[in-house]
Amino acid sequence: MIEFRKVSKEYRNGTKAVTNVDFKVEKGEFVFIVGSSGAGKSTLLKLITHEENPSSGELIVNNMDISTLKKRQIPYFRRTMGIVFQDFRLIPKMNVFDNVAFAMRVVCASEKAIASRVPYVLELVNLKDKLKYYPAELSGGEQQRVGLARALVNNPDLIIADEPTGNVDPSLSFEIIDLLNKINSYGTTILMVTHEHNLALKFRKRTIKIEDGEIISDSIWEELKNEA
């Protein structure tokens, strides 16, 4: 699904955000990426979404070498993934239904398809009775569930979430991850960045820890090491 081969990223201002990163995520996995602030977590995700290009190394996403991607292919490439933002990024003047439908409308889905798909994903995130609510009328947890529904609505193979629980009450973080877990159980690959290491621990998922742009531990490999 995703494979980093000795990928480094140096920003134009000279900041080395990611150095020699090497890892592989298989289809259907649920992976946490943890690390302190400035460690390079968001940069990793930006490389996957093709928002930034690697300075060196190879990056394979969906069996495609990202560097071969042409500019006009990027939108279609992004349709294979759903992105969840820390700041929810809901449009204030649209209600819950329209916020989710927005993601379908802008990829030219028909209103008929929208009318059947949107209620389905909103039910999946337990929000089917709040279709007409506006973002300001929802709790942080609920807003993030709308964000999750929007990421899911175009049926992506991969969900990328950059600190989706960062702006959510800690007691509700659990519920968001639980939801991601449920989505993962239907076969969607999940890549989630978080500060909260103990959350990751609680869910017993593969956890990649990075510091100063380098991977310092990857729980699967550590388990393998322990077994050996």
């Binding site: 979404t49 006009r72 990027i74 939108p75 279609y76 490439f77 992004r78 349709r79 759903g82 992105i83 933002f85 990024r89 449009i91 927005f102 993601a103 802008v106 990829v107 030219c108 929007r150 990421a151 175009n154």
Partner: peptide, 17 residues
């Protein structure tokens, strides 16, 4: 800009944006 960033994130074409 927020709407545009969402459009880009879900794969709207530049033409559409």
């Amino acid at each position: 800009r927020m709407e545009i960033s969402i459009m880009k994130s879900v794969g709207a074409t530049n033409f559409f944006i």
